[in-house]
Design a protein around this nucleic acid. Structure first.
Lengths: 202, 202
DNA sequence: CAATATTGGATAGTGCTACTCTCCAACTGT
DNA sequence: ACAGTTGGAGAGTAGCACTATCCAATATTG
């Protein structure tokens, strides 16, 4: 398969495919001559992955690159696959955010092993911003959110397939990113459902 | 309170405050002379809201403007407050995305009244992207996600305070946007927790 | 009251991201 | 032989979110 077929197959503009190749987001094809290269199903898959991370996950290209590096490298010795995934994933917490408060919340749930993830910074930043506008969650609601998060997380980790490490990492990374919009969309639809059915008169 | 105090109070650079005033994201102060204006607590609150929507919610300024218009206008006659909120909220589904498949999913959960929200388009786009990379959720997992979404949505709508319509709208809009990062951060932390405690040996 | 500082407001410029366009020589198919 | 396509590189563009500079009118200070 040549580059233009790769572009057609995935629906990505040719110029953009070239751009991704230049940026190293998609690996080069096997050159068959000075002006021709051969691409295969792995390139199609990688290109679709990049687009999914950008369009569905909303990641900037730099983050996509980090994610792909993590996917290709597999987990290093000091991190679990999930840690590798999360370290590569945006959004990063705003600089200057501590994690003490988030840690306290997480510990109150009896969760452990969360000391390394930058999600802690995000959690704390979110809590602080809610405070600033006077809309911080009460403990009950926080608990409800935590329980729901734990439920979906349990589904996430139990679904991780056996197989080569690289596949596991890809599964986790992509699953983390791509399932987020799914969860948010379902939440919004559920809100609408509840609001409509609870208040048919209003 | 003068403009520079408003900037200091909220930690937003003065030039940025001026920019938001120009863009109409923060209402003008009460002019006391040709070169002086007076700002009060409502301006502080609005400015903090804008920053929270941008930094925590990750909204582009155009979306912030739409959200604020919805907040200020209150729900119009044809929409519930939640519909108003969601219509103003990004991200929009990529153009060309249908909603048939998403509708089928939603109906399989017995949810109703979701015909209007653009979250349907997001849901369908997410499902299609997952298909494209071969990571679509099986029905069980989708069900798990839907249940979790319904749980948090129930907490969301039950927490809506009684009060002026404008406050209700603000509560819903801000809650929808600001609680999303909270949910995602908790999910990631829960994943890490489960992965670490489930596989202490690996 | 004079000297200095600050203010609100407008205009233009910056830095970043994610493409998109243009060009070109080398090659392909007919 | 020759129009058409290809891979590759560089520069250009569009949008976004600020940020810097300027100005005359006012406020503050000694």
């Amino acid at each position: 398969m040549r580059i233009s077929e790769l572009a057609r197959e995935t629906g990505v503009p040719l110029a953009t495919v070239k751009f991704y190749l230049r940026e190293g987001l998609v690996p080069a094809g096997r050159a068959t001559s000075a002006t021709q290269a051969e691409y295969d199903a792995t390139h199609v898959r990688r290109l679709r992955l990049v687009r999914a991370l950008v369009e569905i996950g909303g990641l900037p290209l730099a983050a996509v690159r980090d994610v792909l590096v993590a996917v290709d490298a597999g987990p290093d010795l000091s991190m679990t696959a999930i840690g590798t995934a999360h370290a590569a994933l945006p959004p990063c917490p705003p600089p200057g955010t501590g994690t003490e408060r988030a840690l306290a919340v997480v510990e109150s749930f009896g969760w452990s092993g969360a000391g390394q993830t930058n999600a802690l910074g995000r959690l704390q930043a979110a809590l602080e911003a809610m405070d600033a506008v006077g809309l911080a969650p009460d403990p009950d609601r926080l608990r409800t959110y935590a329980d729901a998060a734990l439920t979906v997380a349990a589904a996430d980790v139990s679904d991780v397939p056996a197989g080569p490490v690289a596949d596991v990492v890809e599964y986790i990374v992509v699953g983390t990113v791509l399932y987020e919009p799914l969860l948010l969309a379902l939440r919004r639809i559920a809100q609408q459902h509840l609001f409509v059915t609870r208040r048919p008169e209003g």
